[in-house]
């Protein structure tokens, strides 16, 4: 690669906008949808697809942040606990004082951003392995969340967040708002990561942090930004989670979500080693996982069986990626 590349050549240097993994994912989702449409006539109706899209939104949205984090070579296993903290803060605010939608979202996003900042600060400036620190902060966040919960559940949450929910208020032209917002954010981040210098820096850090630093990338700030972004998106996703639920929020909210999000990211073709990945893939990965979960229930199988398929999908998706990497090397 030459440094003196002219703008057109620079564009030529970019990888193809849609990776092979993403094309395969689109194909797999299409096949699954077709198969489900044939086997269960109720699948391709608004009543079945709308909840599917709504349920995809939180995982895909947090996945966008997680993708950036993983591209920088990190990981964040505290997002499940962070969702709990943001949800309970927002839910309590909604119950306690009659705030409107914008204020509720702002509170949740600020809470998420603060948690993300803690992670980012520890990882960027403490220079310790991300998985260890986020295991630690996951425990701390869980403590914080449970303390705010007090004992038991938060009851009587008003329908303020219905804009993001499953109901009529949560849709425009039949498309759920939560899904639409997630798709827009995914598109924006996809463009940012691919077409701006700042976005490319994340890939540089994941490829070789030391080289990136010597090339003038402010590595620590970028890493901090990655975790901060994840936190902010966790905040927004928590609003989706509250909106999808009933008027009661219990302490299990967010539990296990970190693994679901990481699963979506790796199925989407993002390399856990860092330096390679795309938020579009993550979005499709989340959609695939939710399609499987929805399909398993609609076929009348045991709902826990969907986890088995998630496991198999991870193996197949990453296995295919490994084979392609081997082919690239031997070429």
């Amino acid at each position: 690669m030459t440094i003196t590349a002219t703008p057109p050549a620079k564009i030529k240097n970019l990888p193809s906008p849609v990776t092979g993994q993403e094309i395969v994912l689109i194909g797999v989702i299409a096949v699954l949808w077709a198969a489900l449409a044939v086997s269960t006539p109720a699948f391709l109706t608004a009543g079945s697809l709308q909840p599917l899209l709504v349920a995809t939104a939180p995982v895909a949205l947090v996945g966008v942040g997680m993708t950036i984090v993983i591209i920088t070579g990190g990981i964040d296993v505290s997002v499940g606990a962070a969702i709990m903290v943001c949800s309970v803060i927002t839910a309590k605010t909604l119950v306690g004082s009659d705030v409107n939608l914008a204020v509720a979202v702002l509170i949740s996003v600020l809470a998420g951003g603060a948690l993300g900042l803690i992670n980012g600060f520890l990882i960027a400036y403490g220079r310790v392995h991300a998985i260890i620190i986020t295991f630690g902060t996951a425990n701390l966040f869980m403590f914080l969340g449970l303390q705010i919960f007090g004992s038991g559940t938060v009851n009587g949450i008003p329908g303020t967040l219905g804009f993001f929910g499953r109901g009529e208020a949560g849709r425009t032209l039949g498309i759920p708002h939560a899904f639409l917002i997630t798709a827009l954010i995914t598109a924006a981040v996809w463009w940012y990561l691919r077409h701006t210098a700042g976005g490319r820096h994340f890939f540089a850090i994941g490829g070789d942090a030391q080289a990136a630093r010597l090339a003038g990338v402010r590595v620590q700030r970028r890493v901090l930004l990655a975790y901060l972004t994840t936190g902010v998106l966790v905040g927004l996703a928590s609003c989706f989670v509250i909106a999808q639920g009933t008027s009661t929020l219990d302490q299990s909210v967010g539990s296990g979500k970190e693994l679901a999000v990481i699963a979506a990211v790796v199925i989407g073709g993002t390399s856990i080693m860092g330096g390679r990945g795309s938020v579009l893939g993550t979005f499709l990965g989340a959609l695939l996982v939710q399609t499987v979960a929805s399909g398993v229930t609609q076929l009348g199988w045991r709902s826990q069986l969907s986890d088995l398929f998630v496991g198999i999908f991870i193996i197949v998706a990453v296995g295919a990626d490994l084979l392609r990497a081997r082919a690239r090397r031997s070429r």
């Binding site: 693994l259 699963a263 790796v266 826990q304 986890d307 198999i312």
Partner: peptide, 12 residues
């Protein structure tokens, strides 16, 4: 990744 996948599979 491998143990995340098997975690899901075994758990299920």
């Amino acid at each position: 990744i491998a143990t995340l996948a098997t975690f899901y599979a075994y758990k299920s």
